[in-house]
């Protein structure tokens, strides 16, 4: 990742702004700084950044307000920064189209990994029929899942679930989105489906792999990630 990316961060706390500036610059990104929501929207329009980092406690507007305004004209990935892990607002925003989230205090490598994932997702076309995740390969057309060369037998629901997670690899996928994409719009509240099928999927995938790749994000959803210790919600 040597390419310079423009990262806009909207954050009212000066110490956090300084930290973000430091982290982003040291990684070779081009940081753009905004203190208020209004300023953030303006800079997003004038600079068209590659990723937006959005703090949830802005003085002038709510996160949802800002996100919906931004989404009117931009598909730029948005990563939410929140101080309260019990806050439901982040889930709302994720369902509204935000790409990922981080709970303060966060670690620099975590942040950079999320940014990487977000940029990768925005750059590649989502309709790639083959998903390669290390040893794991998902053939969306042929409905075949392989670990290494071994074919893993999955039920159709398990396959759909894995596909949604795989397409968003590295990113958190909300329960709502998973339920919607796999079981349809009428089942977005039946979270117990997820518990049952995620457990089955883990047994079938993580067993042969010998490591954890599906992480649970409490109260938010699931994340398929090849990086160690990818659970952000600590």
């Amino acid at each position: 990742m040597s390419t310079k990316h423009k990262i806009l961060y909207i954050e009212d706390e000066r110490p956090i702004r300084k930290l973000l500036h430091f982290i982003l610059e040291s990684e070779g990104h081009l940081p753009i700084e905004a203190c208020t929501g209004a300023e953030g929207l303006m800079l997003a329009a004038s600079h068209s950044p590659d990723v937006v980092l959005l703090d949830l406690c802005l003085p002038d507007m709510s996160g949802a307000e800002l996100l919906s305004k931004l989404r009117e004209w931009s598909k730029t990935p948005v990563i939410i920064l929140t101080a309260n892990k019990a806050d439901d607002e982040k889930v709302t925003l994720l369902d509204m189209g935000a790409d990922d989230y981080l709970v303060k205090p966060f670690h620099a490598p975590e942040l950079l990994a999320r940014i990487r994932v977000a940029i990768r997702h925005s750059e590649k076309s989502s309709n790639d029929p083959m998903i390669n995740l290390g040893q794991l390969t998902i053939d969306c057309v042929g409905h075949i899942v392989k670990i290494g060369d071994d074919i893993i037998k999955l039920t159709s629901t398990e396959f759909d679930l894995l596909t949604v997670l795989g397409q968003n690899a590295g990113k958190v996928v909300t329960q709502r989105q998973l339920l919607h994409d796999v079981w349809g719009p009428n089942n977005t509240r039946n979270s117990h489906y997820l518990r049952v099928y995620i457990a089955q999927l883990r047994k079938k995938i993580e067993g042969p792999l010998g490591k954890r790749i599906i992480y649970t994000e409490s109260g938010v959803g699931y994340r398929l990630s090849l990086e160690e210790n990818a659970g952000s919600d600590s």
């Binding site: 979270s191 117990h192 049952v196 995620i198 457990a199 954890r212 992480y215 649970t216 210790n229």
Partner: peptide, 17 residues
């Protein structure tokens, strides 16, 4: 905010964290 959960998943998530 009660919901259905997999106790094994919860335990592993906490240990990972």
């Amino acid at each position: 905010k009660k919901d259905w959960h997999d106790i094994l998943d919860l335990t592993q998530t906490v240990i990972t964290r």
